[in-house]
């Protein structure tokens, strides 16, 4: 039954992906709607017009607020998918026009930060496993402790102060590439390198004692080469099994990095929206973040499955 197999592997994952995304978005939609405070009144207050009953009724009808919650959600969802995200309560502008130019900055910083953390963290983790207690091992432990215990904005501010005020290498808030891209990416990466390197180190270390490693060494392969050739798959599996919390970190880290270094990304607008209860701006932001998390978690699951068929059978590898 070829078509059946095709359905199972192509349609089902997409459907369950969509279902989890819609579930998250629906919960946030419901939460926002259940809070006291009528969106129309907030909007009219911001617009500084006198609220006549007819005006309120007209806006309620236009935004579909006179319909059931379910219908409202359907309208919003359709709008989100067709890129009609409504207009901001505060500025009155289309939300898409406000957010689209900013998405690129945030996505670039977040994705590049995540990628660099994985690259650098894997390198440190590999070297740490090769020489336990060595320089790389101590470095990875420092990164892990720092990543958990230091506030991101504090590290960013201190970096800015040292680079701009003490060393005078950069001109603060000049909007240069270094400041708008390199420093934020480094800040986001800094906080993930620790966990990545500890996971990768744990993965490689488990392989160090495996019988096939002894065989490889006995055949005359160098230690580093043997560990890389035989351990990288296992290290990747361990990394994938433990990387999920970093997906969430990237969001908060990117937001803080953008504010510290004055990047014109999403966060600045979102913080303003939070302060002003500008829900039409907030709702698509939540939907985008949910999309990133759902896609990321699914990608992790797919990669793990393809690297390690035992995941499907529930015989997952332990790591510690």
């Amino acid at each position: 039954m070829n078509w059946f197999a095709a359905t199972r592997f192509a349609v089902l994952p997409v459907a369950s992906l969509g279902a989890s995304w819609i579930a998250v978005v629906a919960v946030s939609f419901l939460l926002i709607r259940l809070v006291p405070g009528d969106p129309v009144e907030i909007f009219i207050n911001h617009m500084n017009v006198r609220a006549t009953d007819e005006l309120i009724a007209a806006y309620r009808a236009e935004w579909g607020l006179d319909r059931s919650l379910f219908a409202q959600f359907a309208i919003w969802l359709q709008g989100f998918i067709t890129l009609d995200w409504g207009q901001s309560f505060v500025t009155g502008q289309a939300v898409t026009a406000e957010l689209f130019p900013r998405v690129g900055w945030s996505a670039a910083i977040g994705l590049a930060g995540f990628a660099s953390a994985i690259l650098v963290g894997s390198g440190i983790g590999f070297l740490a496993a090769l020489q336990p207690g060595g320089l790389a091992d101590r470095l990875s432990r420092l990164f892990a402790i720092g990543g958990q215990a230091l506030p991101a904005f504090a590290v960013g501010l201190i970096a800015l102060w040292i680079l701009a005020a003490e060393l005078q290498w950069i001109r603060p808030f000049s909007g240069g590439v270094v400041e708008r891209l390199l420093l934020p990416i480094a800040l986001v990466a800094f906080f993930s390198i620790g966990s990545v390197s500890r996971l990768v180190r744990a993965g490689f270390s488990e392989v160090c004692n495996a019988p096939y490693m002894r065989t490889a060494l006995a055949k005359g392969l160098g230690r580093g080469k043997a560990l890389w050739r035989h351990g990288r798959r296992h290290a990747a599996i361990v990394l994938l099994a433990g990387i999920a919390p970093d997906l969430a970190w990237i969001i908060g880290g990117t937001a803080v990095a953008e504010i510290v270094f004055g990047v014109p990304g999403l966060s600045e607008r979102i913080v303003a929206a939070v302060a002003e209860r500008d829900y039409p701006v907030l709702q698509p932001y939540i939907a985008l973040i949910a999309l990133w998390l759902v896609l990321g978690l699914r990608l992790i699951a797919v990669l793990r499955r393809s690297l390690d068929p035992r995941v499907d059978l529930g015989l997952e590898v332990g790591h510690g």
């Binding site: 999920a244 969430a248 908060g252 803080v256």
Partner: peptide, 11 residues
Amino acid sequence: LTIPTFVLALV
């Protein structure tokens, strides 16, 4: 565990 605390706090 997969919820970003920072974003939840904002919301």
